[in-house]
Computed example of a mutant assay.
Amino acid sequence: MGRGFSYESTNTTNVGVYGTLKRGFHNHNLLGSSPQIDDGWIRGLSLYDLGPFPGARRASYESLIYVEVYAVSPSTLQALDELEGFLPNQPESSLYIRELLFLESGPSCWVYLYNQSIEGAQAIVEGVWPN
């Protein structure tokens, strides 16, 4: 599973995706040959429509979002961090931050949480993008 912010490991890391990285969307190609190993719901997050992409934020326990989980290589994880504007050494300045969370079914995965204001953004109550 996740090994912090090091890209040097030869192991794969599980990443849960809920937006443009999902199968059939324009950024899915960044996952390369990463196999989808699971999918499911993560509790305690809400999804917001930010226009061309969604953003997940921490929310009440009742809130759920749906993710596809992929086993990614260290180089793919680094590419995803770049796409999501995640700066491991400067998380407060990041567009998204990466947190290790658990699916309802138990397995853990890294998930990118939106780290900017959601003022004016429409909540996606169903927890699935696009809604």
Rank of each mutant, 00 (worst) to 15 (best):
A56Y: 11
V67G: 06
M1I: 10
S73I: 10
F102K: 15
H26L: 14
L80R: 12
S9G: 12
Y18R: 08
E82D: 11
D38A: 15
V69Y: 01
L77A: 06
L45F: 03
T12P: 13
A121P: 03
A56F: 10
T12Y: 10
L100D: 07
S73Q: 14
T13Q: 09
A59S: 15
Y112N: 00
S75L: 14
L87R: 13
A79M: 14
S75D: 08
N115I: 08
Y7K: 12
N11F: 15
D81C: 12
S93L: 09
L47P: 05
R58F: 11
V111W: 02
N29K: 15
F53S: 05
R23D: 02
E82R: 14
E99K: 15
P52S: 02
L95C: 02
L77G: 03
Q122V: 13
G4C: 07
S63M: 10
Y66S: 02
D49T: 06
N29H: 13
V128S: 06
G16H: 08
P52G: 04
A79G: 03
G55Y: 13
L45T: 01
L30I: 11
L113A: 05
L113W: 02
V17H: 07
L95D: 01
S108R: 12
E8P: 00
G19C: 06
Q78R: 15
C109E: 00
A79L: 10
E8Y: 11
D39R: 15
I118D: 00
D81Y: 09
L83T: 05
S117F: 04
G19M: 10
N115E: 04
S117H: 04
T13P: 00
S46F: 02
L30T: 03
P130R: 15
L83S: 11
Y61F: 09
L95Y: 03
P35T: 04
E126G: 07
S105N: 12
V67T: 13
Y66R: 13
L50E: 02
S6F: 02
S73V: 09
Q116C: 12
L100Q: 07
Y70I: 09
G32E: 13
V128A: 04
T76K: 02
L113S: 03
I97A: 04
S46C: 04
S34K: 11
N11E: 15
S34T: 11
V125D: 02
G85Q: 09
E62R: 15
L21W: 03
T20E: 03
F53W: 07
H28E: 01
R98F: 03
K22F: 05
P35F: 02
G4R: 14
V128Y: 03
R43V: 05
P74N: 14
R57Y: 01
S73M: 12
L31H: 15
G85S: 08
R57A: 00
Y18H: 01
T13K: 03
G106K: 09
Y48P: 05
T13A: 09
Q90I: 00
I97Y: 00
P107E: 07
L77Q: 08
V128C: 05
L101T: 01
P130F: 12
G127T: 11
